[in-house]
Amino acid sequence: MFEAKLTESTTIKRVLDAIKDLIQQANFDCSADGLSLQAMDTPHVCLTTMTLRSQAFEVYRCDRPLSMGINLSSISKILKCAASKDSVKIVADDEGADCAEFIFENESADRIAHFELKLMDIDSEHLSIPEDSDYQAIISMPSAEYRRIFSDLSIIGDTITIEINKNTACFSVEGDIGNGSLNLAQTDSADEKNPVTINVKEPVKMTFPGKYLNTFTKAVPISEFVTLCLTDGNPLAIEFSLPDEAGFVRYFLAPKIDQ
Protein backbone atom coordinates (compact mmCIF):
# COMPACT_ATOMS: atom_id res chain seq x y z
CA MET A 1 0.00 0.00 0.00
CA PHE A 2 1.22 3.47 -0.89
CA GLU A 3 -0.50 6.48 0.64
CA ALA A 4 0.78 10.04 0.77
CA LYS A 5 -1.11 13.18 1.76
CA LEU A 6 0.06 16.74 1.27
CA THR A 7 -1.62 19.44 3.35
CA GLU A 8 -1.74 21.78 0.35
CA SER A 9 -1.67 20.95 -3.34
CA THR A 10 0.62 23.93 -4.00
CA THR A 11 3.72 21.91 -3.18
CA ILE A 12 3.22 19.22 -5.82
CA LYS A 13 1.75 21.69 -8.34
CA ARG A 14 4.90 23.81 -8.14
CA VAL A 15 7.19 20.79 -8.41
CA LEU A 16 5.32 19.52 -11.49
CA ASP A 17 5.42 22.97 -13.09
CA ALA A 18 9.19 22.90 -12.64
CA ILE A 19 9.66 19.61 -14.50
CA LYS A 20 6.81 19.12 -16.97
CA ASP A 21 8.33 21.22 -19.75
CA LEU A 22 11.48 19.09 -19.69
CA ILE A 23 10.10 15.59 -19.19
CA GLN A 24 7.11 13.99 -20.89
CA GLN A 25 6.93 10.91 -18.72
CA ALA A 26 8.84 9.43 -15.80
CA ASN A 27 8.78 6.80 -13.11
CA PHE A 28 7.88 8.26 -9.71
CA ASP A 29 9.83 6.05 -7.33
CA CYS A 30 8.15 5.65 -3.97
CA SER A 31 10.12 4.38 -0.99
CA ALA A 32 9.96 4.75 2.77
CA ASP A 33 12.14 7.89 2.38
CA GLY A 34 9.78 9.67 0.01
CA LEU A 35 8.89 10.23 -3.60
CA SER A 36 11.56 10.83 -6.24
CA LEU A 37 12.20 10.83 -9.94
CA GLN A 38 15.01 11.38 -12.37
CA ALA A 39 14.74 11.72 -16.12
CA MET A 40 16.67 13.15 -19.04
CA ASP A 41 15.09 15.22 -21.76
CA THR A 42 14.97 13.68 -25.25
CA PRO A 43 18.19 15.31 -26.58
CA HIS A 44 20.06 14.20 -23.41
CA VAL A 45 21.13 17.78 -22.65
CA CYS A 46 19.36 18.10 -19.31
CA LEU A 47 18.79 15.69 -16.44
CA THR A 48 16.03 16.62 -14.01
CA THR A 49 15.78 15.08 -10.56
CA MET A 50 13.12 15.67 -7.95
CA THR A 51 12.68 14.48 -4.40
CA LEU A 52 9.79 15.02 -2.02
CA ARG A 53 10.94 13.58 1.30
CA SER A 54 8.45 11.73 3.50
CA GLN A 55 8.55 14.65 5.95
CA ALA A 56 6.97 16.86 3.27
CA PHE A 57 3.75 14.88 3.71
CA GLU A 58 1.13 15.06 6.44
CA VAL A 59 0.57 11.33 6.02
CA TYR A 60 3.14 9.05 4.40
CA ARG A 61 3.00 5.29 4.12
CA CYS A 62 4.98 3.14 1.73
CA ASP A 63 4.98 -0.52 2.73
CA ARG A 64 7.01 -1.64 -0.27
CA PRO A 65 8.99 0.36 -2.82
CA LEU A 66 7.04 0.91 -6.01
CA SER A 67 7.49 2.78 -9.25
CA MET A 68 4.59 4.68 -10.77
CA GLY A 69 5.03 5.42 -14.47
CA ILE A 70 3.34 8.77 -15.01
CA ASN A 71 2.74 11.03 -17.98
CA LEU A 72 3.57 14.52 -16.67
CA SER A 73 0.97 16.26 -18.81
CA SER A 74 -1.74 13.89 -17.51
CA ILE A 75 -0.88 14.32 -13.82
CA SER A 76 -0.77 18.11 -14.34
CA LYS A 77 -4.26 18.03 -15.85
CA ILE A 78 -5.57 16.13 -12.82
CA LEU A 79 -3.84 18.45 -10.34
CA LYS A 80 -5.38 21.47 -12.05
CA CYS A 81 -8.65 20.19 -10.52
CA ALA A 82 -7.25 20.78 -7.01
CA ALA A 83 -7.52 24.27 -5.51
CA SER A 84 -4.20 25.47 -4.10
CA LYS A 85 -5.43 25.14 -0.49
CA ASP A 86 -6.93 21.67 -1.07
CA SER A 87 -5.12 18.74 0.45
CA VAL A 88 -3.92 16.06 -1.97
CA LYS A 89 -3.88 12.37 -1.14
CA ILE A 90 -2.24 9.91 -3.53
CA VAL A 91 -3.11 6.24 -3.08
CA ALA A 92 -1.75 3.28 -5.04
CA ASP A 93 -1.64 -0.44 -4.61
CA ASP A 94 1.97 -1.60 -4.42
CA GLU A 95 1.23 -4.85 -6.26
CA GLY A 96 1.35 -3.83 -9.89
CA ALA A 97 -1.32 -1.13 -9.78
CA ASP A 98 -2.46 0.13 -13.17
CA CYS A 99 -3.75 3.41 -11.78
CA ALA A 100 -3.17 5.82 -8.89
CA GLU A 101 -5.96 7.54 -7.03
CA PHE A 102 -5.89 11.29 -6.30
CA ILE A 103 -8.18 12.70 -3.64
CA PHE A 104 -8.57 16.48 -3.21
CA GLU A 105 -10.24 17.79 -0.07
CA ASN A 106 -10.99 21.43 0.71
CA GLU A 107 -10.10 23.09 4.02
CA SER A 108 -13.54 22.61 5.53
CA ALA A 109 -13.57 18.96 4.42
CA ASP A 110 -17.00 19.31 2.80
CA ARG A 111 -15.84 18.99 -0.82
CA ILE A 112 -13.94 15.87 -1.79
CA ALA A 113 -12.93 15.07 -5.36
CA HIS A 114 -11.63 11.67 -6.57
CA PHE A 115 -9.59 11.11 -9.71
CA GLU A 116 -7.84 8.07 -11.10
CA LEU A 117 -4.71 8.44 -13.18
CA LYS A 118 -3.71 5.60 -15.49
CA LEU A 119 -0.15 4.46 -14.85
CA MET A 120 2.29 3.51 -17.60
CA ASP A 121 5.10 1.00 -18.00
CA ILE A 122 8.13 3.19 -18.54
CA ASP A 123 11.45 1.61 -19.33
CA SER A 124 13.99 3.95 -17.79
CA GLU A 125 17.54 3.55 -16.65
CA HIS A 126 18.63 4.82 -13.27
CA LEU A 127 21.67 7.00 -13.63
CA SER A 128 24.41 7.39 -11.12
CA ILE A 129 24.63 11.04 -10.09
CA PRO A 130 27.70 12.02 -8.07
CA GLU A 131 26.67 13.55 -4.74
CA ASP A 132 28.40 16.62 -3.33
CA SER A 133 30.88 16.89 -6.15
CA ASP A 134 33.91 18.99 -5.49
CA TYR A 135 32.76 21.97 -7.55
CA GLN A 136 35.14 24.72 -8.66
CA ALA A 137 32.59 27.45 -8.04
CA ILE A 138 29.27 27.67 -6.24
CA ILE A 139 26.99 30.69 -6.43
CA SER A 140 23.80 31.14 -4.46
CA MET A 141 21.34 33.91 -5.29
CA PRO A 142 17.69 34.82 -4.75
CA SER A 143 15.65 32.78 -7.23
CA ALA A 144 13.93 36.00 -8.40
CA GLU A 145 17.37 37.25 -9.43
CA TYR A 146 17.98 33.99 -11.29
CA ARG A 147 14.70 34.46 -13.18
CA ARG A 148 15.56 38.04 -14.11
CA ILE A 149 19.07 37.22 -15.35
CA PHE A 150 18.16 34.28 -17.55
CA SER A 151 14.81 35.50 -18.85
CA ASP A 152 16.56 38.74 -19.90
CA LEU A 153 19.64 37.15 -21.46
CA SER A 154 17.86 34.31 -23.25
CA ILE A 155 15.87 36.89 -25.23
CA ILE A 156 19.14 38.09 -26.81
CA GLY A 157 20.51 34.67 -27.76
CA ASP A 158 20.95 31.03 -26.83
CA THR A 159 24.66 30.99 -26.00
CA ILE A 160 25.07 32.09 -22.41
CA THR A 161 28.47 32.18 -20.74
CA ILE A 162 28.84 32.05 -16.97
CA GLU A 163 32.21 33.24 -15.68
CA ILE A 164 32.94 33.20 -11.98
CA ASN A 165 35.95 34.86 -10.43
CA LYS A 166 36.61 35.83 -6.86
CA ASN A 167 33.46 37.51 -5.50
CA THR A 168 32.01 38.22 -8.96
CA ALA A 169 29.89 36.29 -11.42
CA CYS A 170 29.50 37.46 -15.00
CA PHE A 171 26.64 36.24 -17.16
CA SER A 172 26.95 37.10 -20.84
CA VAL A 173 25.11 36.30 -24.04
CA GLU A 174 25.85 36.39 -27.75
CA GLY A 175 23.01 36.51 -30.22
CA ASP A 176 22.07 37.49 -33.73
CA ILE A 177 20.88 40.97 -32.71
CA GLY A 178 23.90 41.73 -30.52
CA ASN A 179 25.22 40.76 -27.13
CA GLY A 180 24.86 41.58 -23.46
CA SER A 181 26.38 40.93 -20.06
CA LEU A 182 25.57 41.30 -16.42
CA ASN A 183 27.91 41.31 -13.45
CA LEU A 184 26.74 40.17 -10.06
CA ALA A 185 28.94 40.78 -7.03
CA GLN A 186 28.82 38.95 -3.73
CA THR A 187 26.78 40.98 -1.25
CA ASP A 188 28.87 42.56 1.49
CA SER A 189 26.76 42.01 4.54
CA ALA A 190 25.35 38.76 5.87
CA ASP A 191 22.32 40.83 6.97
CA GLU A 192 21.52 41.71 3.38
CA LYS A 193 17.91 40.83 2.57
CA ASN A 194 18.67 39.19 -0.77
CA PRO A 195 22.18 37.82 -0.41
CA VAL A 196 24.36 36.63 -3.25
CA THR A 197 27.17 34.34 -2.11
CA ILE A 198 30.02 33.21 -4.32
CA ASN A 199 32.49 30.50 -3.33
CA VAL A 200 35.33 29.99 -5.75
CA LYS A 201 38.05 27.38 -5.48
CA GLU A 202 39.18 28.05 -9.03
CA PRO A 203 37.82 30.63 -11.48
CA VAL A 204 35.58 29.00 -14.04
CA LYS A 205 34.14 30.04 -17.40
CA MET A 206 31.59 27.88 -19.20
CA THR A 207 28.91 28.20 -21.85
CA PHE A 208 25.38 26.80 -21.70
CA PRO A 209 22.20 26.84 -23.80
CA GLY A 210 20.03 29.78 -22.70
CA LYS A 211 16.80 28.01 -23.61
CA TYR A 212 17.31 25.57 -20.75
CA LEU A 213 18.54 28.15 -18.23
CA ASN A 214 15.33 30.04 -18.95
CA THR A 215 13.16 26.91 -18.65
CA PHE A 216 14.57 26.32 -15.16
CA THR A 217 12.92 29.60 -14.07
CA LYS A 218 9.73 27.51 -13.84
CA ALA A 219 11.19 26.24 -10.54
CA VAL A 220 11.47 29.73 -9.03
CA PRO A 221 8.19 29.49 -7.04
CA ILE A 222 9.61 26.43 -5.22
CA SER A 223 12.36 28.25 -3.44
CA GLU A 224 13.51 31.67 -2.33
CA PHE A 225 17.09 30.86 -3.32
CA VAL A 226 18.86 28.89 -6.00
CA THR A 227 22.35 27.40 -6.06
CA LEU A 228 24.47 27.01 -9.21
CA CYS A 229 27.48 24.67 -9.02
CA LEU A 230 30.11 24.71 -11.76
CA THR A 231 33.17 22.69 -12.64
CA ASP A 232 34.96 23.21 -15.93
CA GLY A 233 33.90 20.62 -18.52
CA ASN A 234 31.18 19.13 -16.30
CA PRO A 235 27.41 19.61 -16.23
CA LEU A 236 26.10 22.68 -14.41
CA ALA A 237 24.09 21.64 -11.34
CA ILE A 238 21.22 23.93 -10.33
CA GLU A 239 19.24 23.31 -7.17
CA PHE A 240 15.96 24.74 -5.94
CA SER A 241 15.28 23.45 -2.40
CA LEU A 242 11.84 23.24 -0.87
CA PRO A 243 11.42 24.89 2.56
CA ASP A 244 12.12 22.84 5.70
CA GLU A 245 14.23 20.31 3.79
CA ALA A 246 11.04 18.86 2.36
CA GLY A 247 12.79 18.11 -0.92
CA PHE A 248 14.30 19.69 -4.00
CA VAL A 249 14.31 19.99 -7.76
CA ARG A 250 17.75 19.72 -9.36
CA TYR A 251 18.78 20.21 -12.94
CA PHE A 252 22.02 19.06 -14.55
CA LEU A 253 22.79 20.85 -17.80
CA ALA A 254 25.42 19.75 -20.32
CA PRO A 255 27.82 22.55 -21.32
CA LYS A 256 28.56 23.79 -24.80
CA ILE A 257 32.13 22.78 -25.56
CA ASP A 258 34.75 24.20 -27.91
CA GLN A 259 34.90 22.34 -31.18
Binding site: P43, H126, T159, E174, P235, A254, K256, D258, Q259
Partner: peptide, 14 residues
Amino acid sequence: MGKQSTLTSFFRPL
Protein backbone atom coordinates in the same frame (compact mmCIF):
# COMPACT_ATOMS: atom_id res chain seq x y z
CA MET B 1 30.26 29.40 -30.13
CA GLY B 2 30.79 25.86 -28.89
CA LYS B 3 29.07 22.60 -29.63
CA GLN B 4 26.31 21.36 -27.37
CA SER B 5 27.51 18.30 -25.42
CA THR B 6 25.18 15.66 -24.00
CA LEU B 7 24.96 14.13 -20.55
CA THR B 8 25.41 10.53 -21.63
CA SER B 9 29.15 10.73 -21.05
CA PHE B 10 28.73 12.23 -17.54
CA PHE B 11 26.05 10.08 -15.94
CA ARG B 12 26.33 6.31 -16.26
CA PRO B 13 23.47 3.86 -15.78
CA LEU B 14 23.56 2.27 -12.33
